[in-house]
């Protein structure tokens, strides 16, 4: 029985050990007396130890208490919505270089706002459309046209 802290500690520890192992093959540069792996190994070693310490403290505390308390109480948090929001954002990021900033942003704002508040009324449909269009146009005009921040153009659309 390990708790959330224990898992966190183990994951951190294991990840750093894997990365530590990856630094072993690094080549040294003749110009620098210590190689590029020296400092990473230091940091990763410390992280592994800290992660393991967190795991052990968690274990000890649980044992002291005699069996852990039940797993995290059902918090009722809407994790599905969080996952979907991340997914929508992920798709947006993937589509940016393909569809271009203007098209992708319009779709993203529309999609996410409808996901967070499903458009059950006409007013919400309208709000979503206006918001998506306004955001896209305003940010594009301000940044690309006026402030010369060159936003991505779509490789599929050329727009």
């Amino acid at each position: 029985m390990i708790g959330r802290d224990g898992v966190t500690g183990l994951v951190a520890s294991a990840t750093s050990l894997v990365l530590f192992w990856l630094t072993l093959g690094l080549e040294r540069n003749p110009l620098v007396p210590i190689g590029p792996g020296f400092y990473p190994r230091l940091v990763l070693g410390v992280t592994a130890v800290l992660g393991f310490a967190l795991f052990v403290t968690d274990l000890l505390r649980r044992r002291a208490r005699g069996g852990g308390p039940p797993a995290a109480p059902a918090s009722g948090a809407n994790y599905l919505l969080v996952a979907l929001s991340f997914a929508v954002f992920g798709v947006y990021v993937m589509l940016l270089p393909l569809l271009g900033y203007r098209l992708a942003t319009f779709l993203f704002v529309l999609g996410l706002s409808f996901l967070l508040e499903p458009p059950r009324r006409l007013g919400l449909w309208l709000r979503g459309m206006v918001l998506a269009l306004a955001t896209t146009v305003a940010t594009y005009v301000i940044f690309d046209e006026y402030l010369a921040v060159l936003l991505p153009r779509g490789s599929w659309t050329g727009f």
Binding site: V130, A134, T136, V137
Partner: peptide
């Protein structure tokens, strides 16, 4: 407002003029 925005959006459609027709990085 949104009509005005729409008008701006249409005006932004890319024009294929001679180089350079957009900012150079």
């Amino acid at each position: 407002n949104s009509l005005a925005i729409l008008a701006v959006a249409l005006a932004m459609a890319p024009a294929h003029a001679a180089y350079p027709d957009r900012p150079i990085k």
